[in-house]
Design a protein around this nucleic acid. Structure first.
Length: 486
DNA sequence: ATGTTC
């Protein structure tokens, strides 16, 4: 029997693969997608999401969000909540190598007309001040021991040291600092790779974008206003980056640790080595949990310094202070993490380690950890599309409980990077985008080709699926006008 | 994603 015969349509946006599909599945797998997205879905995702459903402690369903695609072990777009009192595991493959890869959005009080002649200058200057590309290093000079403080304190360290405003911290997941980060669980090698990378964008699909909110793209005026979007053709800045080589090394270190002890010490058998894991309540699991929190904080700090640089650049180019230009953070979301959260499962409150790998937390109104400013409307959700097509600001909703309050994180690739490089040319893409009013700079033309809009699912389809399924609600769509691609 | 194959 093929996978398609096992796939049960639960609703217009939810598809289920029962436990009978594969030996060892503890729970069904559920994919969130419209019929169109299901047709486009990489078949490997079915294999990966059902592998996840075999992991010890997995609660309710192994999930895949509408932007799901093939990843390391888990699909990207994968969500799995492990019950830590029922032998639940922690798995680096369910978090991603780029720990706390995430998005931040900042508004301005400027309109498109006020910046249109300065876009090139802004992008060129941002390109200088926010280092991008493989192996790039930042302008924040830290010793290795200072960097150990940064990974324990996150964005708080940055604000204390002059990078940004106190109010920024209130508008970040975990207020910019994940408690319990313990740098004694970090290898010297990870420190070596990360200590000079604060304030850098990275490569791949990481980018920094100047965007405009067109009046016709505001779906909920009241919610938009609550998030600081009130002016027609308002200019905002969005960026996407993570924990660079640091997070990557943390993941690599602990994958090796887990592979050694998983079967011999804990008797866990897995279908794919890439799903290496350890019980959450084990010395190895706890060590990785503390180390991963350092990765989360490195990334929060990285985005905080980048935010500060953006304010500096706008101020330099446009001649007003960041305060005068109303450069306030909307929110900062992580989309590669595992977090210990309390959720109701079959009527009972459970302590779950929610893995979100290429998936965004989307807490509804009144939930704990939603900032006071947004308590009554729900957590802002920032979803980045491809550099050509546009991005979205959404909000979490009460019906998000079905996915442990998680939603999509981006467009999701439809073709491999290698295939995109074969089909598209970076130089031509840059010219085409320029014609359509998007000034783009990149460290690499081949990297640019990999990020061609056509190599991704249609962001509007992904957002539509997420909204129809009731896992997040659209607020505004954002249109790019300038882009720095890592 | 990544000192793009320790």
């Amino acid at each position: 029997m093929t996978i398609k015969e096992f796939l049960n349509k639960i609703s217009d946006t939810v598809w289920e693969i029962p436990v009978s599909y594969k030996e060892g599945m503890r729970v069904p797998a559920r994919i969130y997608a419209t019929e169109k997205l299901i047709r486009e879905l990489d078949e490997a995702v079915y294999d990966q999401v059902t592998n996840v459903a075999t992991l010890p402690g997995v609660s309710k369903y192994a999930l895949c969000m509408p932007d799901g695609h093939f990843g390391y072990g888990f699909p990207i777009g994968g969500v799995a909540a492990m019950d830590v009192e029922e032998g639940g595991v922690i798995s680096p493959g369910g978090i991603g190598f780029d720990i706390n890869c995430g998005m931040r959005l900042m508004v301005t009080n400027l309109t498109y007309d006020e910046v249109k002649y300065d876009i090139k200058k802004l992008v060129d200057k941002l390109y200088q001040k926010v280092p991008a590309g493989v192996g790039s290093t930042g302008f924040v000079k830290l010793s290795r021991s200072e960097f150990r403080e940064v990974v324990e304190q996150g964005a708080r360290w940055c604000v204390r040291n002059g990078y940004g405003w106190e109010e920024d911290l209130e508008l970040m997941e975990e207020q910019g600092c994940m408690k319990g980060a313990d740098s004694s669980k970090i290898s010297d090698k990870a420190i070596d790779r990360g200590f000079n990378q604060i304030g850098t964008l990275g490569s791949g699909n990481h980018y920094l974008e100047i965007q405009v909110v067109r009046p016709e793209n505001i779906f909920d005026k009241e919610l938009a206003a609550r998030m600081g979007i009130t002016i027609p053709n308002q200019v905002v800045v969005m960026f996407h980056c993570g924990s660079r080589g640091f997070g990557h090394q943390v993941a690599t270190d602990y994958l090796q640790v887990f592979l050694k002890v998983m079967e011999s010490k804990y008797g866990i058998k897995i279908l794919d080595r890439e799903l290496a894991c350890a019980p959450f309540h084990s010395p190895e699991g706890q060590a990785y949990f503390s180390a991963m929190k350092c990765g989360i904080n490195m990334s929060f700090a990285n985005r905080q310094v980048i935010l500060h640089r953006i304010r500096e650049v706008f101020s330099e180019v446009l001649g007003n202070s960041p305060e005068e230009m109303g450069m306030h953070v909307v929110y900062d979301v992580a989309h590669n993490t595992a977090k210990l959260e309390s959720h109701i499962v079959d009527g009972k409150e459970r302590s779950l380690l929610v893995h979100r790998k290429g998936a965004t937390r989307a807490f509804g109104p009144q939930m704990q950890d939603v900032p006071e400013k947004y308590k009554d409307i729900g957590q802002p959700v920032i979803i980045g599309g491809s550099m050509e097509t546009g991005s979205y600001l959404l909000v979490g909703v009460p019906t998000g409980d079905q996915t442990f309050f998680s939603t999509a994180h981006g467009s999701g690739r439809t073709m491999s990077r290698a295939k995109a490089r074969k089909i598209y040319r970076g130089e031509q893409l840059q010219k085409d985008m320029q014609k359509r009013g998007i000034y783009v700079r990149s460290t690499s033309y081949s990297g640019l080709a990999e990020e061609a809009g056509a190599a991704y699912k249609d962001i509007d389809d992904v957002i539509e699926a997420a909204e129809l399924a009731g896992i997040s609600k659209r607020v505004v769509r954002l249109t790019p006008i300038g882009n720095i691609k890592g």
